[in-house]
Structures are given as structure tokens and as C-alpha cells.
Computed example of a mutant assay.
Amino acid sequence: MKKLLYVLTLSLSIINPAFSAPPSNFTDAKVIAKQKIYLDQASSSMGELYCGCKWTWVGKSGGRIDAESCGLQARKQENRAERTEWEHIVPAWTFGHQRQCWQSGGREHCVKDDPVFRVMEADLFNLYPSVGEVNGDRSNFNYGMAAGVAPQYGQCKTKVDFDQRAAEPRDEVKGLVARTTFYMFDRYKLNMSRQQQQLLMAWDKQFPATAWELERDKRITAVMGHSNPFVTGQRTWALGYKPVGDGVVSALPQKVSRSDAKPQVGISNAHGVVIGNRNSRLYHLPVGCPSYDNVSPKNQISFASESEALSAGYRKAGNCK
């Protein structure tokens, strides 16, 4: 009887929207994600994001990885490989740079002065428990194919291509990763390269939503008050898709300091990461530069701003408007 009551209480705590409210910051989001979304998933067959490992909850939102459950072996950082961390499927670095707050003082400035960044950082759709070392190795890399990379974490199928700055997750979550990325870029009106769109569209088609992804969407919807429309089928990403921006509730406050009171000649405030071409030594902006999406991934180098690209010896491509 006691066991039955426990199961009923656990189920209600996970799925009942009456007990839920959207998190207001990343710290709260991790606790809510544990309690409302993943509490019963630590020992499930799906496992954590990148390796499918089971784990044991520790503290308010932490966990210890069961390496034997997934054949995990540490690449270099044994301590970090033993714990779970909360992975932002779309990295905070990525949306922080596109919001432009990161360039003005890093993550701390984004959290302090950009309300949209705080919402994005705490968005439950974008959070998933993961092996700490793989989370760290993935860093802020885009998703990509790492066909030439040998296994790095024992039997874990996720691979990180450090040379190409790309991470290829295991097949079981490629569809989930794609649809989560579509959601974040759509909801917060971000710019996505043509190559990234094409890859994620292929994953979306090849790996349709699983029963767990649909259940995960329902649980998060109960907390956030809205679903991921790319999971429910309400929206479909096509090449050149124009993000809606449902979650952009305010613009980034503009603070004028002595250093930027006078605009620098030739320095743009275009949103998005500046992409440089190592071969041509030219850089391209996400807006106004036709070749932005055409730089080969192996030749790409990212800059936070035009001034950073110029300081590195790059010049703006001649076909930029």
C-alpha cells in the first residue's frame, strides 16, 4: 500500500500542472527539471542525453553516473565523467552572442541585464541531464557529423570533433536535439546557418519523436505553459524558415558607456556570430553577407564581433552589403 501511494505521489508531482510554474532562472530550472521532468528517468532505458547512462540523484539537482550501465569510460576528466550536468542543447554561449549581451560582459552580464537571456537559460525544453565530461567537451560547438572520429568515451556513441568544433550525438537523441534546436531558434528569433539547418532537418526526418520525447514534451508543457511545436507537429522547419519569436518579450537594454559612446567606423551591431574563412582571411556577417552560409565548416572560425575579426587580421567580404 505504501509503495502504491509513493508511485501515485511521484506521478502527480511529475505531471500535474497545478503544482508547476515556469522557472525564473537557471538555478531554479535545474531543480524543477529534476522534480517535474526527469525524476523517474535516472534508471530508465533512455538514460542521460549523450551516452544513455543511468544515474543516481544527488542533492537538489545533481547526480552520479552509473558508468557500467552504458559502458562509459572517461576520456581525460574522470571526476567530471562521474557526475551529471545540465546540458543546454543550444549552448548559452550561442544564444548569448546572438542576443549581443555576451560581448558586453559575458554570461554574468547576460544574466544581469537581459531578461530574454534569463528566460532562455531557464527554458526547460533546452535542458537535459548529461555526462559531465561529454558536456564539457561539447562546449559551445554546433552539432555536426564526426565520421572520422574514433570512439572517445568507451561504448558511448557521442563523438566530439575538436578540430572541426562539432559534436555528433548518439542516434537515439539526434531527432530530439534537432527539434529542440528548431524550438529555441524559432521561439527566440535566432539566426541558424544553412549547413546547420540542412543537417538538423535530415535528423528530424530520419529520427521521428519517440514515446519518451512526446512524454517529455507533455511534462515540460505542464510547467512552461506551451509545447514545442516541432514535436507536436504544429510547425515544421524548412530551409529558410523565418523564426516567429514568441519568447522575445523585450529587447536587450542598451547601455552606453564612455568606450562606446562614439560608434566605431565599420563596426556592425548585426545579431549573430561573425564567421571567418581561414583560407581567404575574410569574415562574413549573418545579415547582409550572401556567403555567410557557404563557408566550408573546416575553414570556419567564429568571432564574437567584427572588431574581434578585424583584430585577428580578417577583413569583411567584398560582397557584403
Rank of each mutant, 00 (worst) to 15 (best):
S61T: 14
W55R: 00
C51F: 09
D66M: 03
G62Q: 05
R64K: 14
A42F: 14
D66N: 15
A67F: 07
A29P: 11
A33W: 00
A67T: 07
R80D: 01
S43A: 15
W86R: 02
G52W: 07
K30P: 04
K30N: 02
T84I: 08
C51H: 09
G62H: 04
E82F: 11
E85H: 03
E85Y: 01
F26W: 06
A74F: 01
S44Y: 02
Y38S: 06
A33D: 01
A67M: 12
Y38K: 06
G59F: 15
D66T: 07
R83S: 12
Q41K: 10
G52Q: 05
C53D: 06
G63D: 05
I65L: 08
E68H: 12
L39R: 15
K60I: 06
Q35N: 13
T84G: 01
E78S: 06
E85I: 00
K36W: 08
L39D: 04
I65S: 15
E82L: 13
L39C: 09
E85Q: 10
A33M: 10
S44Q: 07
S69L: 13
G47H: 14
K60G: 14
Y50H: 10
V31K: 11
C51Q: 06
S61R: 03
G59H: 15
E68L: 08
W86Q: 01
A33T: 06
A29E: 01
A42Q: 04
V31P: 03
C53V: 14
D66C: 15
G52C: 15
G59R: 11
W55L: 09
A33Y: 03
E78K: 09
A81Y: 00
A33Q: 03
